[in-house]
Design a protein around this nucleic acid. Sequence first.
DNA 1: CTATGTGCAAACTATTTGCCGTCTG
DNA 2: CAGACGGCAAATAGTTTGCACATAG
Lengths: 132, 132
Amino acid sequence: MVRRRLTRQKRAIFEILKKTNTHMTADEVFGIVKNSIKNISLATVYRNLELMTENGLCDEVYVAGRPKWFEVKKYASHGHLFCRKCLKLEDVIECSFCFTKNRIEKEMNFKGEEFKFLIIGLCKRCYGKRVT
Amino acid sequence: MVRRRLTRQKRAIFEILKKTNTHMTADEVFGIVKNSIKNISLATVYRNLELMTENGLCDEVYVAGRPKWFEVKKYASHGHLFCRKCLKLEDVIECSFCFTKNRIEKEMNFKGEEFKFLIIGLCKRCYGKRVT
DNA sequence: CTATGTGCAAACTATTTGCCGTCTG
DNA sequence: CAGACGGCAAATAGTTTGCACATAG
């Protein structure tokens, strides 16, 4: 078992993610953390976001062809809406997931650790514009 | 509007996917289609799988850090279980998704087109082995 | 015939890794 | 003061694209 150390890089990255209160990509975090730690490297941001995820502090949201998002773990269960036009991600609180997830895991004899619910389409604003 | 042509590459790729009756990666399809069309290119496989998806013939399943899977569209709604140990993907038929999806779309004023439900964890076999 | 589709090779993007010096505990 | 961590640059993997020729309709 590796004994982890709390570096200022780690602290800064986590604080940024917590303050934003939404999902951010590694690159977005990098853009902000550079203000306080001038020569921090993107690799460090990736490494720490991954560590936090492994330790259950963060969740990852992934849409094919897009950079991964990270967010501080907050709701017991929530899903996401991804607008394929403006490329924005939106949260959806949805409690029924927990039950569905638990039932599926029991039925399928699967030890679930994370679960993801994602709807891809057009958000109100983009659909209003009648985009293809 | 582009008028599409039905080439033998397209036909072969679709047939393979339909015959398998599960999700396959582009590379897996490539491995098989090469038997019948010796000098087919992986790029062609990617191009055609994408086209089929756009035309509603296929669905895509993706998990961060893994190659994308494609499958012929079959159930009205189903989700997936991904085992992080053996890296296998399993289908879950789950009808309640439709309702949840419809309700969310109405509540959030979102024009949904595709939706994905994914549980990541350990499958029966790998959990039995008490893997970390 | 003509413009869509293909094969090839090169490009691309997000992410990961190796190396080696730095700094936490 | 050992070994976890960080910075840098190079590597990686999956996928996409540009180009010139092939071919479906």
